[in-house]
Computed example of a mutant assay.
Amino acid sequence: MLLGLMASASYFIYLVTSQENSTLAVSLSTNALKFYCPATGQYLGECTGHSGTIHEISFAAPSSPQVICSCSSDGTIRAWDTRSYKQISLLRTSQELFSLSFGGSSGNLLAAGSNSQVLLWDWRNSKWLASLEESHMDDVTQVKFAPHQHSKLISAAVDGLICVFDTDGDMNEDNHLLSVMNVETSVAKVGFFGNTYQKLWCLSHIETLSTWDWNDGSRELNIEDARSLATDRWNLDHVDYFVDCHYSLPDDKLWVIGGTTAGTIGYFPIRTGLEGAIGSVEAILEGGHIDVVRTIYPAASTYLGQNRGIFGWTGGEDGRLCCWHSDEIAEINKSWISSSLVSRVQRKNKSRHQPY
């Protein structure tokens, strides 16, 4: 049985879990945020206020685990208290905002990507700090602070450039731009991987995949026909798009996650030491979605308690939010789609995950 979470005209754009894994937050095409219990799908509350598309959401620093921030095409970054679902702060700009990230050596910086600019604030007091205007020539689609080098900030844009900044001290591009990498096509998503997160994966808007060492700016892998290679690595329909990449630190392993227009997605391993090396699919998520999957949030392998055995969560253009359980936990036999719990028969094939 499927119970639609949203009206047919709305769909999911972005999802993330809180640091203590007690709350699943999703942004919707209705410009609202909604919150659910990760294990059960129970609806918890919602936040409204944006007048344009919410491009990215992120829980704030560990010192404020109850705060989530959202950036939007309406030119604002809004902070919300997930206990009361009320807006608690507002940063307003004159530009569309595509991405945001928390970091800095003191954990006080909030970065955002806008129309050819990288913007920086002290998020503790909402003080504007800098506007980096010379490094990019088009929309900045991604900003991310490095996990193990908190002062380092990565930005990526439609102009095909990935820039590395040092955010310590008074910010200016003359002294703080460390390096530039040229992907040579519009950048959609980037993320860190490697045992010290010294490497960067990059997905482009034309579905190419590349990997980089961002410390020295060298490109290690460039796969221009990534969708075709992934399609050859499973026996299902053609891989039509990539949703994201996922890196497991305990396994030191990177996957690219591809999907079909019918809603099936697969995890394909990337062997970065070999040119064009997309391995055979290692996990298939099928039966939950009937349209394009827009966002995926893989569960951490350390999840315990009520979240034990969860493989991850997905949201799609079909208006469905799905929770997937790992077949490796035999006693776990409940998954959920949207707001309804459904039973699932355990399968012996550990490479397939279904919400039924």
Rank of each mutant, 00 (worst) to 15 (best):
A300V: 01
Q142T: 12
I278W: 05
C71H: 06
V158S: 09
G288S: 06
E133R: 11
A39N: 10
K348G: 15
S84P: 00
L28A: 04
W128S: 13
D139S: 13
F145A: 10
S351C: 11
G288E: 09
A299M: 08
R352K: 11
N115E: 15
G41P: 00
E184Y: 04
G312C: 07
E56S: 10
E173G: 05
L304K: 15
N235T: 12
Q117V: 07
N215G: 08
S114H: 03
T30H: 03
S340Q: 11
I57L: 08
G169L: 04
S339G: 07
L229H: 03
N172L: 01
T272P: 05
C323G: 07
E224Q: 14
F192T: 11
S114N: 06
K253V: 02
L44H: 05
L229I: 13
V158F: 09
N307V: 10
A111T: 09
S186M: 06
S18M: 10
S72D: 09
D138F: 08
L249K: 12
F145N: 09
S155W: 06
D138E: 14
G194F: 09
H325G: 12
Q306I: 12
L3D: 11
V243Q: 03
N215W: 00
N333T: 12
N21H: 15
I57K: 00
E134A: 09
S105H: 09
S18F: 08
S114A: 15
F145G: 10
L304Q: 14
T260F: 03
I223Q: 05
S116I: 01
S89G: 07
T272G: 06
K86A: 12
T272M: 03
K350G: 05
S64N: 09
F12N: 05
L120T: 03
T211I: 05
S27E: 09
T272Q: 09
W201Q: 07
D237T: 00
V243C: 14
Q95C: 04
V140K: 00
F59G: 06
A157L: 10
H205L: 14
K199L: 15
E133V: 08
A226F: 03
A60C: 15
A330T: 12
L33C: 05
A300L: 12
V281E: 09
D291N: 15
A61M: 11
T30R: 08
S126E: 14
P298L: 12
T76W: 02
T23C: 15
S63F: 07
N235Q: 11
L254K: 07
R219E: 14
E207Q: 14
G75L: 08
L90H: 14
L110S: 04
L249V: 13
I223M: 07
N125G: 08
S338G: 07
G104R: 06
G217Y: 05
W336D: 01
I296S: 04
S64A: 14
D166G: 04
R347N: 09
A230Y: 01
S155F: 04
D225Q: 10
H246N: 13
E96C: 07
N333C: 10
N222T: 04
D251R: 15
N115L: 10
S301F: 00
D159E: 11
